[in-house]
Simulated scan of single mutants.
Amino acid sequence: MDLALLRTFVTVHRAGSFTRAAALLGLSQPAVTSQIRTLERQLGRPLFLRQARGVTPTTIGDELAHKTAPHLDALVEIAETVADDSSLRTLHLAGPPEFTAERALPALTELTGEDGRALALRASFGNAQEALDGLAAGHHDLAIGTARPRGSLLTATALCDEVHVLVAAPDWAERAGVEDLRDTDAPALKDVPVVDVHESLPFVGRYWASVFDARPSVPATVVAPDLRAALACTVAGAGLAVLPRYLCTEALDRGDVVALHDPPVPPLRTYFLVVRTGTLAMPHIARAHEWLLRAASDWN
């Protein structure tokens, strides 16, 4: 059986779409369709059910993917090892920009060694779905996400919980009359402008629903698709924001921002460390995976 056909098959299975698989493989969609049809003729069984949006694997398709994907990944690893005549291994990591930059990458740099020859790091930033799609397609070795992926082609391990804090510059806290942080309610904050990463207010909206059992009453005044930018705008007085505690701890300590609320149970978001099933057999991936889990035990 042609390994190129199997590679195309596994990519389609992971991507869930001929179009997306074609883009990942650098092929045309007709070429991908032709290869899958050739493989189906060789096996005498359909591997995918064509749908309006993408494809769904048949039982035979799922079985073939589970049997072949780990071996294809291992062959890629062997090819990379043979092509590389040094001891340097490259780890491709994907995840959200703020958490990856502030938490994961600093922890993993300890694995590069004093001479930088133990491990090379390559990072890609994106949303959770982009990271998982890239991981499934073989572009990344590890992905950090905020949702546990479905199916068995990807394996997720809980990494850490992220505590969210409602903050604003001191002037806004004074204007809102925030005195007893535990008793602050949503109406007391109705006139404070909002800073978030998207028009849908994913952070503020989740906080309001979890803590106040309500929806935010005003749209975002500032939308910045990076939590570090949201923090900078909040420090500058743009309004209130809901931010991960690790990201705003120093600003809180300096008094650049203050917590507007101290709920008995603060909202949390769980991060997961995700790999392609079977790839933890590769030493450099397993080492980075273990190192991140160990480092996360000290994160708060």
Rank of each mutant, 00 (worst) to 15 (best):
A136S: 08
A156V: 00
V223Q: 04
G126K: 10
P106T: 12
A220N: 03
T112P: 05
W172A: 10
R148F: 06
A214G: 09
A214H: 07
V163Y: 12
L132I: 02
L135K: 01
H140S: 13
P97N: 10
T146D: 01
F212E: 08
A137C: 13
P97A: 14
R117P: 09
T221A: 14
S124M: 07
A118I: 03
T155G: 09
L154Q: 13
D213Q: 11
D180G: 07
L108F: 00
P193L: 08
T100H: 02
R150E: 05
W208T: 09
V165F: 09
C160S: 05
G138P: 01
V218M: 07
T155F: 04
E114Y: 06
V204Q: 07
G134E: 11
A147V: 08
A118K: 10
P216D: 00
P149Y: 01
A169I: 00
V197D: 14
D183G: 08
V197G: 10
L142G: 11
S217Y: 00
T155W: 05
V197L: 08
E179R: 15
V222K: 03
G145K: 00
D196R: 04
E114G: 15
A188C: 09
R175T: 12
A137F: 05
L153K: 03
G145R: 00
L121F: 04
A94S: 09
D185R: 15
K190Y: 09
A128S: 07
L132W: 03
D133R: 05
Q129Y: 04
R117G: 12
V204G: 07
R206E: 10
F212T: 04
D183V: 08
G126Q: 10
G145M: 00
A209Y: 02
A118S: 13
D115R: 14
E130S: 14
R215T: 11
F203I: 06
A169M: 00
G116R: 04
A101K: 06
S217E: 12
H198G: 15
T155D: 04
G177L: 12
A169H: 01
G138C: 03
G145F: 00
L93Q: 02
A168S: 09
Y207W: 03
T112C: 09
R103E: 02
P216G: 07
E130D: 12
L111C: 15
L142C: 10
R215G: 13
W172T: 04
V194T: 09
S210E: 11
L181E: 09
S124D: 12
A188W: 00
C160P: 06
R206D: 12
G177Y: 09
P149F: 01
V195Y: 10
V218T: 08
E110L: 14
C160T: 14
W172D: 07
T155N: 08
R206N: 10
L91A: 11
T155S: 14
T109A: 07
V195L: 15
D183A: 15
A118T: 06
A186T: 10
D196V: 01
V178P: 05
G177M: 06
H139Y: 09
P187K: 10
